[in-house]
Simulated scan of single mutants.
Amino acid sequence: MSLPLPAEISLETLTPEIVAKTIDHALLKPDMTIDEVIAGCKLCAQYQTASVCVKPCDVKIAAKTLQNTGVDVGTVIGFPHGNTPTKVKVFEALTAIEDGAVELDMVLNIGLLKSGHLSQVQDEIAAVTSAAKAKLPSCCVKVIFECSLLTDEEKISACRLCEKAGADYVKTSTGFSTGGATINDLKLMRAHTSDVMHVKASGGIRTLDYLIECLQAGADRIGASATAAIVDEMRARKS
């Protein structure tokens, strides 16, 4: 769960607590061990991040580790390429919720989007979103674009499709492709979504200064693995 962001975002108006609550701490490396996942979850509890984002196979252990800590458990759907069939993404989403996830970051079907099959892309997002929210009304659904693979026109189309499909967030990238979050992409996504929609920046955000730049460009949530370094730097500057 996030904290409200100040109306004007700057080093002066942010606090370490607010910064930590913008972060979804990523534990998604394919070679990550169970012990590393547990340690990462404990770090989230210590720093009080918004959530942890783990692989689907790690949702149960994350939910157990973070029980009653105030840190939400999230996972990824169709990750990292978005190529699994819709029914598989829906199954992944429902299984993740059963295992304890309350936030889902799903990768849209990039190939269908680039092929211009926009109604199919929207239908898939809607299928995952409606199934997830029917099972858990408070479930937060974020849709990953993989912006480095898309044109600006495709990003704008994706923003509109996500909003029509009922998703909660649009998200820049998986962190496992050819690029991460850019300020231009965040501004574009913010400009082409309504105030109801949120924007998540993910991929390559390793410093406090860049996190603040992303928030200023329109992001509400940040996907990062350098959580400790970022929040510790904020504490040091504030002191």
Rank of each mutant, 00 (worst) to 15 (best):
A167F: 09
G223K: 03
S239Q: 15
G116R: 06
A181R: 01
P30E: 01
D209T: 12
V37A: 01
A26K: 02
T178M: 11
S130P: 09
I212M: 08
H192A: 06
S194F: 14
V196K: 15
V90T: 02
T129N: 03
N109G: 00
G218P: 00
G74W: 09
L188I: 07
F176A: 07
K87N: 15
T174E: 04
S51C: 12
T15D: 12
L14I: 08
R206F: 10
C57T: 13
S130L: 13
H81S: 15
S138H: 13
V121E: 01
E92V: 07
C139R: 03
A45H: 08
T65E: 13
A127N: 05
D99S: 10
P85K: 09
Q46S: 13
R237M: 15
I183N: 04
Y47E: 13
K171D: 04
P30I: 06
H25K: 00
A181C: 08
P85M: 12
A167K: 01
V54T: 01
C139V: 09
T174Q: 03
F145W: 14
D35K: 09
L208Y: 10
A62H: 06
R235E: 14
A20R: 01
L104T: 01
A219C: 05
K164G: 07
V121G: 00
I34W: 07
L3R: 08
L150H: 09
I61K: 05
S2E: 13
N184L: 11
Q122T: 05
R235C: 15
V141D: 01
F91W: 12
G203E: 04
H198Q: 14
D195Q: 10
S202L: 07
S194V: 10
K238P: 10
A63N: 05
K89F: 11
I183R: 06
